[in-house]
Design a binder for these strands. Structure first.
Lengths: 137, 137
DNA sequence: ATAACTGCAAACCGTTTGCAATAAG
DNA sequence: CTTATTGCAAACGGTTTGCAGTTAT
């Protein structure tokens, strides 16, 4: 959380074009989990000439650089969030598509436990919980 | 596990055409998590005139009837498995795409805990863990 | 008989890519 | 100046759909 997305991009030596700066800003300001279409809409408000292909390319670049996390919730389109956001997990309401964020210390432990059990080693702290059929109670 | 897929289909009053019977059989015999293309290949060995559109339609029908579970691992294509298989979870190796099945009693507890915490009610026992970056250790 | 199902091919939707023009370092 | 990046439009891959013909009940 110390550095901005732009700063982290520069740190990694990415060529920061005007388009990339705009997309970085949009992502910086996003408290939700926008998909590419949504990022494109928000970026277009700042620069209406930006193309959706560039958004796709930029988001892929940032993901590969570890600056963004790509979230795939099984609804067809990928969503993105700042990789440096405070750690949390996601629960998707399969009926509404709504994304619920939460933190649970037991999940952290579980990550380790399952990984160990299976002879794998965790890299970082990325765990998604999804597919739980939910009903508001 | 008492009933076969075909029997469960009939129980639900689904019209069982020759194509649907074949797909039910293929699914019955699958110990893995085939995608539609794979189901189509296997079904084609029994009846080469079957069309992939029918496989898509059938798999959707069976999923909506609760006979199949649709698994979306974020690799673009959906995978399917018998909904009545013994309960288990999936872990996907993000590098190889390999699917690892496992059971962990703590996950069962966690399902309840998280759902309660968020004011939701679990329907059944569907929980997928995915997106954990893994490295063989 | 008749309503549901099939195969085919075209459409669809999110994403990627080839290309010629443009801009960053 | 040189190489990376852009916008456009076409292509892509998985999935859905309209239609005319076929099949289960």
């Amino acid at each position: 959380m110390i550095d901005t997305i732009l700063q982290r991009c520069e740190q990694k030596g990415l060529r920061m074009t005007s388009q990339r700066k705009i997309i970085a800003l949009v992502l910086e300001d996003a408290a939700d989990h926008p998909d590419v279409e949504e990022l494109y809409k928000r970026a277009s408000k700042i620069d209406p000439t930006i193309s959706i292909a560039t958004v796709y390319r930029t988001v892929k670049l940032f993901d590969e650089a570890g600056i963004l996390d790509k979230l795939e919730f099984g609804d067809g389109r990928a969503r993105y969030e700042d990789a440096e956001r405070e750690h949390h997990d996601h629960l998707i309401d399969v009926n509404s598509g709504r994304v619920i964020e939460f933190v649970d210390s037991d999940i952290e432990k579980l990550q380790e436990k399952i990984a160990n059990k299976l002879g794998y080693k965790l890299m970082g702290h990325k765990l998604e919980l999804y597919g739980v059929p939910l009903k508001k109670s």
